[in-house]
């Protein structure tokens, strides 16, 4: 197991240097002439109005919750998928029950309009 992750470690270390080296080269090459007008927040050429904090749609949050639940469901389904060919038939039925139960949750959300984007 460790052997298989060794390569990831080496690749990760090398990949980590790529953005660092790129930023350093760019820092050496590029002009640096900051001035206050340049560093203002961009807002189509006018002065920024108010705070950046805009009304955050709660819909995003609902999607994130549903996403987390289905992500965890997938984690449980992957071992099932690997072992599928060797499992007894009743296991298959239980796995389907597992999926259908979650699908019910999704249907509830659908009925409540939680999936709908306005």
């Amino acid at each position: 197991m460790l052997q298989e992750f060794e390569f990831l470690g080496v690749l990760g270390a090398i990949t980590l240097t790529i953005p660092v080296v790129t930023l350093i080269i760019a820092w050496l090459l590029r002009p640096k002439k900051p001035n206050p007008a340049k560093q203002e927040t961009y807002e189509s050429g006018i002065k920024t109005i108010g705070d950046t904090w805009v009304q955050f749609k709660a819909q995003y949050y609902i999607y994130a919750i549903i996403f987390v639940v289905f992500d965890i469901e997938a984690v449980f389904l992957f071992p099932f998928a690997v072992a599928l060919r060797q499992l007894p038939l009743y296991s298959l039925i239980w796995a389907i029950v597992f999926i259908v139960l979650l699908f019910d949750g999704l249907l509830y959300g659908w009925r409540k309009g939680a999936l709908h984007w306005n």
Binding site: I62, I65, I66, V69, I72, E73, F76, W94, V97, F98, L101, L102, D104, G105, L106, Y108, G109, K112, A114
Partner: peptide, 15 residues
């Protein structure tokens, strides 16, 4: 199977 029920409860509760 309990995990499945737990997850649906979390889903419904969250929504």
């Amino acid at each position: 199977e309990v995990v499945s029920i737990l997850l649906s409860v979390a889903l419904i509760g969250g929504i």
